[in-house]
Structure formats: structure tokens, C-alpha cells
Write a protein that binds this DNA or RNA. Structure first.
Lengths: 202, 202
DNA sequence: GTTACGATAGTAATAGATCACTAACTACAT
DNA sequence: ATGTAGTTAGTGATCTATTACTATCGTAAC
């Protein structure tokens, strides 16, 4: 009888905690996730969390770290295999959409974290993540301009802002409808308009 | 000596309360606004708020009502004076940007409200607001298509999603930089890309 | 005009709930 | 047997909402 172990290692618990937070954020307001809710989801008591994390803030930080790593690795891999800068941008977009569809709480957590008043580490991590993301976008866009695929007059900073806004708009739409499936369904049509805005004229 | 009245009428207090919430949302995380913070801002004690509102939720509802009314009236007025559908869309956008620049907490409140778990009235009000907003966008875009100003193949639903995402992207950028001024500064360049995406080919 | 009075605006204090976090104890694994 | 994972039962802080009391305002009688 494969009796599953009742005690997990500290490392495994930390990973499971992050997963619980990501899952919970998909179902409810990230700002309202309590340590009790996290522990319940893991089948633990609330106090047990503080065996592995000194504070709740540390849990949030670990979650942001997980998100940043996973997201950047995913979009990088997608961009690598693309034939051209514009194709890489589209692959990045679709991969991002895929990630968000699987983890609908993530963009909400990021946005919520950016709103926090103080100068928390978690907030800084989100800022760094988005800046790294934008840097990748700008690099691809500059390459696309050089190669003539994208409009020569394109403002890459503005285009990067709009790229992220495109995803944010889809997230907002899914919140409006209460259906995460909306994101994937509407993504291609929305991106088509975006692409038309940055491409060089035929 | 013009001794200013120490007591305000119930109606005036309600309006002042909404204003305090809007102002506070510009400075801090809307989710973290407490009744004490609202009362302090108004120069009242915390309990006094409950003379005019039965619950905190009612304060939020009144605020959402104020926001919806003001925003829709503003953009409607802007769209009315425009010479063409595309010009009306641009006027709507710029007016919206102007509104958001004056009240930076508003888009954050709306997004935060959409994330709430339950089926609150405030959430429903935000959903209604955005749907009415999208309806105006779609009507203008259909007119623009009919008149040849906008691309005949334009997916108006997707274009409406992207219109809102464009603003959301600018709001996110201002949160990243910590400067509200970013919104106004970057808005024209970002909208230019959007417009290029929906216009008919030259 | 002053005064008395009823209605309403606001205060002070606190109740009750919830939250993050802790300390003392227990179960488990190697 | 020893270190670690987890539990139980709290503590103190914070937040919404209530209650009993007080201050102020408008107004009607004299």
C-alpha cells in the first residue's frame, strides 16, 4: 500500500505553498488571500506555514519569484523558435496568453502588487519582471524595424506599453464575463489589431 | 467673521465622502482604504461615516456611481463634438486619459472591484459601466466602418477590448514608474499605434 | 428678538470579528 | 534519539459597525 507521506520536506512545502497561492488567486481576489486559506488548501493548519516562511510577505515574495521565472522562461523559449521578430512577438503573446489561461490569478496578483503603497520587495520584484519583459519586447521590435517587418516610424516604448495593455485588456474582459476561457478565445482577434498597428504598411 | 459651518448636510457629507475615497485611491491601494482613513481625510471620527452610510460597502457603491456617471458624461460630451467616428474615438480616449490623470485611483478601484469574489452590487455597477462604455465604442466603430474610415474587416468586439486595454496598459505603466504624469505623456504615442491598427489602409 | 425644542450631525468608547504571527507541545522520520 | 514537520491555543493589532451621549441647527411660540 503506497501510503503517501504525511510530512513533506521544507523545500517541497515551500513549492506547494506557492502553488496554493497561485491556485487561490485564480479563484478569488488575491488581496483577500489569508494564511488560513492557503493552509486549508494545503491540508495544513494556519500556523504550520510559519515553519517554512517567516512572514506572509515572504510567501508573496516566493510566489512572485516563481511567477517571474516561469513566465520569462516560457516566453523566451517561444520567441527563440520563431522565424522572424514579428513571429517572435506573436509567439510571445500567445505563450503569455497560454500562461495566463492556466494561471488566471497571476496578472491580478501582479497588478495588485504594483498598487501596494510601500516599497516592498515583492513590489520591486514585479517591477523588475515587467521591465525585463519590456526589454525583450523592445529588442524584438528594434530587430523587426531594422528588417523592415515592422513600421520604421514605430515608437517601441509605446508599442511595449500597448503589448502589455493588450493582455491586461483581455484579463479585464475575462473578469467582466467571469470566464477565463474568454482570454484564449478573444486573444487572436485582439492581437491581430495590435499587429496591424505595428507592422510596416503592405 | 464668516464662521464656516461645523455641520454639513447629509447630502453634502455623502458627496464629500465619495470625494475622499476617490482622493485616497489616488494615493494608496484602494483595497487598503479603511473607514478610519476616509474619516480622517474628512476631519471626522470613524463612526460618523455610519450616520450617512449603513455600511462601508454602501460608500463603495456611492463612489462607483459617481465614477460611472462622471466618466460616461465626460466621454459622451467629447464624442459629440467630434467630426467623424475616428475623431470621436480619439476624443473619447483623450478625455478618458484626462479623467484618469485627474483621478488616478479610479481605474485601480474599478479593476480591484472586478476582482472581488462575491456578487456585490458595487461589482455589478462596474460591470455595467464597462459594458455601457464598450457599447459606445462599438457604435462608433460600426459607424467608422460604414463610412470607410475604419478597416472593413475590423472586429469591433476585439477593438473595444483593446481600447480599454490601451488605457489599462498606460495605468500599469504609471504604477511601474510611480508617476501619474506618465499616463498623459505616453498616451498619444500609444493611441497612435492603436489607431493604426483599426484604420482602413491608406 | 429671544428662547425653547425637536431633529440631525458628530463624538467617544467599545463590541465582535478577523488577521498575522508565536510559543509550547506532539508526531514523525531517519 | 534527535531534529524537523505539524498542531493547538493562544496574543495583539486592526477593522467594521454599534450604542449611548453631546453639539449644533432650524424653527416655531411667545
Amino acid at each position: 500500500m503506497s501510503q503517501r507521506p504525511q510530512y513533506l520536506s521544507a523545500e517541497d512545502r515551500r513549492a506547494a505553498t506557492v502553488q496554493a497561492v497561485v491556485d487561490l488567486a485564480a479563484e478569488q481576489n488575491p488581496a483577500e488571500i489569508t494564511t488560513t486559506a492557503i493552509a486549508d488548501r494545503m491540508g495544513l493548519t494556519q500556523g504550520a506555514l510559519f515553519r517554512h516562511f517567516p512572514t506572509k510577505e515572504a510567501i508573496v515574495e516566493a510566489t512572485m519569484s516563481w511567477v517571474g521565472e516561469r513566465l520569462l522562461v516560457s516566453v523566451d523559449k517561444a520567441a527563440e523558435g520563431a522565424a522572424s521578430p514579428a513571429a517572435a512577438l506573436e509567439a510571445m503573446f500567445m505563450t503569455h496568453i497560454d500562461f495566463v489561461s492556466k494561471h488566471p490569478g497571476v496578472p491580478r496578483m501582479l497588478f495588485g502588487e504594483l498598487q501596494r503603497s510601500g516599497e516592498t520587495l515583492a513590489k520591486r520584484m514585479v517591477q523588475t519582471l515587467i521591465r525585463q519583459y519590456e526589454q525583450r519586447l523592445r529588442r524584438l521590435m528594434e530587430a523587426g524595424k531594422a528588417q523592415g517587418e515592422l513600421s520604421a516610424e514605430l515608437d517601441v516604448d509605446a508599442a511595449a506599453v500597448l503589448f502589455i495593455g493588450t493582455i491586461q485588456g483581455l484579463v479585464m474582459q475575462s473578469l467582466l464575463a467571469g470566464k477565463v476561457s474568454r482570454i484564449r478565445r478573444d486573444a487572436p482577434a485582439v492581437f491581430a489589431i495590435y499587429r496591424r498597428g505595428i507592422e510596416s504598411g503592405t
